[in-house]
Design a protein around this nucleic acid. Structure first.
Length: 232
DNA sequence: ACATTAATTATGT
DNA sequence: ACATAATTAATGT
């Protein structure tokens, strides 16, 4: 794998933004870069966490499997963020599986460098703990939703999160920036693909969303916000 | 208020 | 043509 990656790749990313060019060079020289097709596994739940990762381009889907073999999607990660940082939460193995949701480019480092990074790179520690904090917060919100909200509200919330975190503005609305199926959304919201399909069809007729296969665009985010709160 | 089952149609290689 | 995705209706809890 030939690499002479440019320092500019990392300089703008929060965990590295306070560093000198020489430090970035040092970090890059210890990294491995890899490109993944869509729907490839980067690591699997239970694997020993021998590396940690930075997503340079693409999207990562964090999933877990139930004993019956059903998928649950716990999170989507956009580019520019660290993932697979088991050490940050005091684990020796990955707590979930990471799959690419689209073609992606990933940097990784051996986990033995984790403590080095924390110690000698200014801002790395605070930024990574911000990241885990944000993710824990999001998961807490989802637990609340699961326990208290109806399916329609949960699906509306899931779409809103997706367009906020991974949305791409296009004419007439905001599109989810990677291929996503009804099945996927059902796996994020604890419902069935049929219910998601019915909801999206209904919302399409009302002009709230518009979708083709594996593509969903939100035309009217404000109405989705209303739906996500409505008490039917 | 939702899941399940099943039949049917659409879409991408 | 074949597999995967999406829709729709009917029926069940």
């Amino acid at each position: 794998m030939p690499h002479k990656l440019d320092e500019s790749l990392l300089i703008s990313l929060p965990p590295f933004s306070k560093l000198e060019r020489s430090q970035i060079r040092e970090i890059l020289d210890q990294s491995a870069a890899r490109r993944y097709e869509a729907d490839q596994s980067v690591f699997s739940e239970g694997d020993t966490a021998d590396r940690f990762f930075m997503l340079l381009d693409g999207y990562i889907r964090v999933i877990r499997l139930t004993p019956e073999g059903e998928q649950v999607i716990s999170l989507h990660i956009p580019s520019g963020q660290l993932f697979g940082i088991a050490k940050a939460i005091g684990r020796e193995s990955y707590p979930a599986t990471a799959m690419t949701a689209a073609e992606s480019i990933v940097l990784s480092w051996p986990t033995r460098l984790w403590d080095d990074f924390l110690g000698k790179y200014d801002g790395f520690a605070t930024e990574t703990y911000k990241t885990v904090g944000a993710r824990v917060g999001e998961m807490n919100n989802r637990i609340m939703e699961m326990a208290t909200l109806h399916v329609e509200q949960r699906v509306a919330n899931a779409l809103l999160r997706l367009i906020n975190q991974t949305g791409r503005k296009i004419d007439g609305g905001i599109e989810i920036d990677f291929p996503i199926t009804r099945q996927n959304i059902s796996e994020m919201t604890g419902t069935t693909l049929h219910t998601v399909s019915r909801l999206l069809s209904a919302w399409q007729k009302q002009g709230i969303v518009e979708s083709q296969r594996k593509r969903i665009m939100v035309r009217d985010a404000h109405r989705l916000v209303e739906l996500s709160q409505a008490g039917h």
